[in-house]
Design a protein around this nucleic acid. Structure first.
Lengths: 214, 214
DNA sequence: GCATTTGTCTAGCGGTCGCTACAGAAATGA
DNA sequence: TCATTTCTGTAGCGACCGCTAGACAAATGC
């Protein structure tokens, strides 16, 4: 079995998205359960969230979890993907939508201050924290690759502005990108340690002061 | 029993520090074993390091560990204290020994780049990482308090320079201190994610560029 | 020698971990 | 109606978790 979920294998429409399957229907909403798992992993991290914790917050039995999401690893991977599209995309959007790298990173840092302290959900960034001190190396490396990919995206956005003459030719895109990434990571840690939105916004202000004048 | 180690209770001299006790002597060097435990906790964090891992790297039996160090929590606390004096004191030293806050923080950031990537030991900072995703709230809070205390120390050093007229009176000591702390935390995360000493030193350079001109 | 003190060794406690076998329940198509 | 398909609930698997009881080993003071 290649797919991790039987009812969503190729050729058969997913349950709950219109085409009802043949057997007994699922007694819970898959998206809602996934969101509950997302919040649990976001708050406590991969290893510190047990399958028993998950079934409790998702309000389903263990076999239902395994039937719907595969094993714990698969569920976490799906959670990370969902997090990326629902909560962790503000940076990519900022880089893509703003006219310059400078404006994109300014917006990214300001929005990070808001996102990382938003009420009603865990503070900080799931990708930065959820696999720290994880004894499953694949999980730890998977999130590390995401972090480094984010920094690489910042770097290429800066390099594009340098190539277009919007930034001085001597601008070190890689260093500036790493600085931005480190700042984001520091802000996320600060949020976890109790910093308020205003305090994070003040950090963003300072971080932007180093930006080369275009 | 109040003390966590029988052979070091008040009134009786510690074993291995000159005054031999009465019973069978310890078959291992306590300081060496503690150092091994320190490295294990530093690399993998509190929860991801099991007692079984500890006895293996310390090369002692389980009852010996409990007799010499108390339980896992006590051993970790002693490790954190040892880490603070042996590896984590460069920041306090920099603030105390340099003539100005600016010089102290400059040295702190530069030394962090070296310390966090030193060969032969885990990268990054134990206090920043070892209790992330920890399901023992006391341990998590203990390290969080240390992080926030470090930032408070930076703040008071900056405030002292402001009071002495070495920095502009409008300098926001708290914000500048938090910025420095966030930068240190971001550098530590970067070290864990594979950044080299040179890359971290470049981050320190950028971070210092925002410092107000005194 | 001998009682006392202390450390080490083997073995195993109760608990939780991620995960699954199996039987029954609830839908389908014929 | 009834076989087929799929999901759910109970119950429990082997492995590891932190930790400890109890027997033996090795030092001391007398």
């Amino acid at each position: 079995m290649a797919s991790s979920e039987k009812s969503e294998r190729a050729g058969a429409p997913a349950r709950g998205t219109g085409g009802r399957g043949r057997g007994r229907p699922r007694s819970f909403d898959r998206a809602t359960a996934l969101e509950k798992a997302l919040m649990a992993f976001w708050e406590h991290g991969y290893e510190a969230t047990s399958v028993s914790d998950l079934t409790r917050v998702m309000d389903i039995g263990t076999p239902s979890l395994y039937a719907a999401f595969g094993d714990k690893r698969s569920l976490f991977e799906e959670v990370v993907q969902e997090y990326g599209t629902r909560y962790g995309s503000f940076g990519d959007r900022a880089l893509a939508e703003e006219p310059t790298a400078r404006a994109g990173i300014e917006r990214m840092l300001r929005e990070a201050a808001v996102e990382y302290t938003a009420p009603g959900r865990p503070h900080g960034c799931l990708v930065i924290h959820a696999a720290v001190n994880c004894s499953t190396p694949e999980v730890e490396e998977s999130l590390r690759e995401r972090r480094n990919a984010n920094i690489a995206a910042i770097e290429s956005r800066i390099a594009a502005d340098v190539a277009a003459g919007l930034l001085p030719p001597h601008t070190e895109a890689a260093t500036l990108a790493r600085y931005t990434g480190a700042m984001i990571q520091g802000m996320s840690q600060q949020a976890r340690d109790g910093a308020s939105r205003g305090e994070l916004e003040a950090l963003a202000e300072i971080a932007l002061a180093v930006w080369p004048r275009g």
